[in-house]
Design a protein around this nucleic acid. Sequence first.
RNA 1: GUCCCUGUAGCUCAGUCGGACAGAGCGGCUGCCUUCUAAGCAGUUGGUCGGGCGUUCGAGUCGCCCCAGGGACGCCA
Length: 557
Amino acid sequence: MNDVIAVKRRLIETLSEAASKAQEMGKLPAVALPEITVEHPPNSGHGDYASSLPLKLARATGSNPMAIAREMVGLMAPAAEIASIAVAPPGFINFTLKDDWLTRQVDGILAAKDAYGNMTIGQGTRVQVEFVSVNPTGPLHVGHGRGAILGSTLANVLAAAGYDVTKEYYINDAGNQIDAFYRSLYARYQQAFGIAAGVPANGYVGNYMIDLAKEIIAEEGNKFLTLPEREAIARLGEIGLKKMIAQITSDLELLGVTFDVWFSERSLYQGGQYEKAMSLLKQGGYIAEKEGATWFESTALGEDKDNVVVRGDGSPTYFAADIAYHYNKFLERRFDKVINIWGADHQGHVSRMKAVIGALGISPERFKVIISQMVTLRRGSELVKISKRSGDLITLREVIEEVGADACRFIFLSRSADAQMDFDLELAKKESMDNPVYYVQYAHARIASIMKFAQQDQMDFSDGDVSLLTTEPELALIRKMVLLPEVIEVVTETMEPHHLAYYAQDLATVFHSFYKQCRVVSDDKVLTRARLKLVQAAKSVLARTLTLMGMQALEKM
RNA sequence: GUCCCUGUAGCUCAGUCGGACAGAGCGGCUGCCUUCUAAGCAGUUGGUCGGGCGUUCGAGUCGCCCCAGGGACGCCA
């Protein structure tokens, strides 16, 4: 187990033992102990860890919290890594870490290298993160980028926490939308040859469809003109679909987002999973025929309304496909946990999918949906349209090319998924010099520069004595570095990657402050070696944090 | 009408399980480059935490009721 996490666990244990002992001795009424937690006090003057257990016990026992705190502290065996335990009003117990324990962590971080922060809390649990999964009927826009960044970062963190992670993209390559896409493409194809064909009413009218048709013509010529319409649409559509998927793939790669599995909706029908899932629900008595269609009776499960799974014309709905897909995730591929990141427009889909999960006999805590809220794109005060159906749209690719992948990632990671946000292109660019993105990367580049400078003197610091790191700026830096494992733990528990961005910024801040106050390479060779160790460790933690966020750790800026 | 998300400093946003004086970045105002990167540092300005009631020793955080913004309520996906 990681050292800091171990310390935290030990403190909780110490508190628990002290409380029990006080009860045994009759100094504290024998009430059930509340869940014991330790936190980081907001004010650093109060130490590294604090517990409000006495305050909580005061409520349960009706006694004075300060007295309880004193009693408990008196019963605590001093832990090896703790320098002092103090009681503070109105009833906190504060713990301060020993300086030499802190400085030793520098050696620990250097030894862990890229693996620093890794944990085993996941215990190899098989978790699937499904994200983006945009219909391959048009290019990605910024909103999709948000989900992509959220998902890939979450996957990185879960992997660091010891989960066995599969990143997956669900390709909706069947159904009405694909049909509309195929027909729209066929119309544009015909138009390119001067044939008066109309894009269907519910079709995709964007200019990219004209470009797509032209691209196909350049490669395939006019051969689809002579085919029967049915066949032409199918074959042309297939080519267009492949191209759209390729484009989506490469757009995501620009953002540093990749997937382990690209899962085809069609395969659900070809593999018989759709039938299996449906018959399972039927067996459970959740399926009913009415009004000429087949329904999933979710009202019986507390839902607002029932939902159609098979239309009057016999074709399955999107909902039916998703049922089959989740049947596949849980019952065929047997993921222990499934995390879906959906756009805000899918929020109505959440509760009925939860109902399905229950109906399939899957325990609800294995299924988690994160809704990534809307992004509105603007240039200053001017609103920029990103609708797929309209002609003028700014694609994700254009945004990335304009502001940069790292800036994009950081901006999205600085906000919690359930807050709607404005993405101001002007601001993202104008701020580019003062952007927190560069602030963090600059800290890393600065250290790289120090290392390079030190290397000119062939400085070997492998025997640096970390116990010489005794000043406030040095210890403050270590205190922050040592927090990464906890951040990873928090992100894992809350599924909120944005904590990482704030941590990155905090870490950069303490580093920059340290840098200003402490000269690393100096005439004092012994101190220099110790500080080189410190700075090298800081570089490693910064790099790890940036990597988890999917960002570059630059050597030079 | 029902359901979901949001409302915290001039702006953009954090705020774990209810805890110590409510935080950061940007902006504004002051200072700081002979020395490893000033894309930096130090200081300062700035808040009825949308409003009300309640629970609690203690509420930005929990409950109820309002107000405001956004989204979802298809045999679209």
